[in-house]
């Protein structure tokens, strides 16, 4: 393998690792928006997921328990969004911000005791012969369990969403609640389920961030990933399959900024941290520039455009 290959696969692995927490959150947010619910609270759900996941890993010494705890915390917090948006029919943007604010506060409060604690890492996965495959072999060997989990969830959710009856019901609710109701589907029930699944995935994403990616807990550590996810759903055209490339845009930008920092570039580290947010904003703008409404769930247009 020549050195260019090593640089490329190294970059791909770090992009994948950085994209993983975002990808999980993005998948959840995508499902929610397809049923007509936008949730900025994904940011707060990631934070409680990261905090609970880190705390549980530190307490039980098992990162898998941490992932479970993170997912559970995400579900619990997303129930607040479901209550406010589906129950009280509050404004979705405001409700999401409230959930973010609450999640930030709760994770800071309960996470105060976790600062400086150590956690057990995942065992590396034994990929066997796959590690010897040309080019992608070293990418596969460099994967952690959360990366693999996120990558597997993309086709699972993609197929479920487009090939099953439940998936069809969810899509119907997003396109036309009235038609769904006429077909005997309760939009409220589906939206509540979608918000809770979104909570589960963003909580999982948060736990992947603290338990596997950074392996620390810090207040506000998701640093806008949940909010970026809300924007990248638009870039992915509300299609679960497209969440992977969308997440890789952010992950790639972050990997690039880390790469440039270690390569002794004259650009400062703090300035390079801006790159992922800038990339997200630029692709979001380019997506909107195309002006094609294809893919926007009809039920979401009313929320987004007002």
């Amino acid at each position: 393998m020549d050195s260019l290959d090593i640089v490329f696969t190294g970059f791909l692995i770090s992009a994948l690792r950085s994209a993983t927490p975002l990808l999980l959150t993005l998948l959840g947010e995508c499902l929610g928006q397809r049923t007509g619910v936008i949730n900025l609270g994904a940011e707060g759900q990631m934070l409680v997921g990261a905090m609970a996941g880190y705390g549980a890993t530190a307490a039980f010494g098992n990162p898998w328990v941490g992932l479970l705890a993170g997912a559970g915390a995400g579900v619990a917090l997303s129930a607040v969004h479901a209550l406010l948006v589906v129950g009280a029919q509050a404004n979705q943007f405001a409700s999401g911000l409230a959930v973010w604010m609450l999640g930030f506060g709760l994770s800071a409060y309960f996470g105060a005791a976790l600062v400086g604690q150590q956690v057990t890492a995942f065992d590396s996965i034994d990929v066997g012969a796959a590690a010897q495959w040309p080019v992608i072999g070293s990418v596969i060997a460099g994967m952690t369990p959360t990366v693999l989990l996120a990558l597997l969830l993309v086709p699972v959710i993609g197929l479920w969403f487009y090939r099953t009856r439940t998936g069809l019901r969810w899509r119907a609710v997003g396109e036309s609640p009235a038609a769904a109701r006429a077909a005997g589907v309760s939009p409220a029930t589906v939206q509540i389920q979608a918000v809770l699944v979104g909570g589960l995935l963003s909580g999982l994403g948060g736990a992947a961030l603290s338990v596997d990616y950074t392996r620390t807990w810090a207040e506000g550590m998701s640093a806008g990933r949940g909010l970026v996810a809300v924007g990248l759903v638009i870039v992915a055209r509300w299609n679960p399959w497209w969440t992977l490339p969308a997440a890789l845009l952010f992950g790639g930008a972050e990997a690039l900024s880390l790469r440039l920092q270690t390569a002794d570039t004259p650009i400062s580290a703090q300035l390079l941290h801006i790159l992922p947010y800038l990339v997200s904003l630029v692709v979001l703008t380019l997506t909107c520039l195309r002006r094609s409404d294809s893919g926007t769930p009809a039920g979401l247009k009313a929320v987004m455009d007002r």
């Binding site: 009280a88 911000l97 506060g105 709760l106």
Partner: peptide, 21 residues
Amino acid sequence: PSSIALVVQGLLFVAVLLVGG
């Protein structure tokens, strides 16, 4: 921890949306 004020702030936001909604 002083972050308890942030939790109360979040609960205040939730309450106003709940009642208003």
